[in-house]
Design a protein around this nucleic acid. Sequence first.
DNA 1: TAGGCGTATATTGTCGACAATCTATCTCGC
DNA 2: GCGAGATAGATTGTCGACAATATACGCCTA
Lengths: 227, 227
Amino acid sequence: MYQAHPALRQPVTAADRVLLEIQRAIVEGDIAPGSKISEPELARRFDLSRAPLREALARLERCHLIERIPNAGARVVRLSTSGLLALYQLRENLEGLACKLAAEHMTDAEITEVRQLLDQHLTSQRVREGESYYQEAGDLDFHYRVILGSKNSYLINILCDELYYLVRMYRVQLGMNGPRVSRAFDEHKAIINAIANRDGELADLLMRRHIAASRRNIEQQLEQMGT
Amino acid sequence: MYQAHPALRQPVTAADRVLLEIQRAIVEGDIAPGSKISEPELARRFDLSRAPLREALARLERCHLIERIPNAGARVVRLSTSGLLALYQLRENLEGLACKLAAEHMTDAEITEVRQLLDQHLTSQRVREGESYYQEAGDLDFHYRVILGSKNSYLINILCDELYYLVRMYRVQLGMNGPRVSRAFDEHKAIINAIANRDGELADLLMRRHIAASRRNIEQQLEQMGT
DNA sequence: TAGGCGTATATTGTCGACAATCTATCTCGC
DNA sequence: GCGAGATAGATTGTCGACAATATACGCCTA
């Protein structure tokens, strides 16, 4: 029987559910960056025992949303310029690779779906003009789809399970809105076109540039906030 | 205070220790690929409760040595050609990137250390001629050092914590010995030279080729075994 | 008054038992 | 005889309590 990829498997256990809740809370800033994680407190707050909670914390550490020190507890990760640089350095390479592989392995049907997704984005973007294009989450996200299209399970695991939420945290907490919104959309269009043309080299290049531009954008916002 | 990277942090908790033991057992084949993991059995075998054992299993899943299905248990990963291809596709990119970054960020002292390490390998290799060059593990490993030299914590985490053991499992269980041994050594030399010359682009290229060659080598062995 | 030390408190790590879920076997019906 | 359903067994997920460790406070000394 086919086993769905962990990233898109729906939660079945209590640990799964509380993981999703805490993940959302951290990504959206409900639990402040740098704040200490108290196991007893969270256990009370979500009304379960510490066993499934610790399971969830282990997975949160895996996706870099918290940092644990043995016998000393866990803290929510802090956002920093150096962290962002390191993260985006990786993304440029990995998502570039994902594009290259997607150009080889995505089916025509999957490509069509992504195009429909982009059209959908365009609509909702025009309707709510000021709203951030980046807010779309989960498998509505363009990047998400392309990554899955690479069909490389290790790559998918790293990007969708381990780095994805931290990327979203940077996006959300630094409020990704502004002039880049419409340009990012055009870049997405160009990337899926390259994939549709089975031009992996170009898709790779375009994605790297796209992410580099996105990085510079967030970087600016960080500098403005920092000073 | 300085916090050592998780990868080289020494085990302090019971879960840490049993993790290392099971990791070794799986990598070296003492626990057969594809075999079912029984929590009660392992708990008895290592003389501890299921709580720290499950913690260890969570981390084993993280480094792709076991696969878990909720409410249904865990199995040791199986080695396959497709899995190897996917894994090495990633490694080519990631370790290439690591080389590029290492050329930028490694200190002269660190480069000297790696060179001494290679000389050491040469000695022990010539002494025990038939023995596999690849058997060296942990921070004795050339790749390990270069990756740490990239100074990118996310990259280090992925390569040293999450993919490293699976790579070793392929190496060990397919018995990496043969004519490639001495050639791999020369390739390592060329890579550290490029890094010493601060030629990131060349180091990247050489590492990609090195891993591609290594992949083809293992691939051949897999085919021979499979047929 | 500042700094180091020892105790008190709180938190994390570990344990054994119970509940929920899945797997395998047996029985029954077609 | 073969397949579907029910039941028994085993395994995983969860719970509450205990032990080991780290943090915080107060005290003593220089």
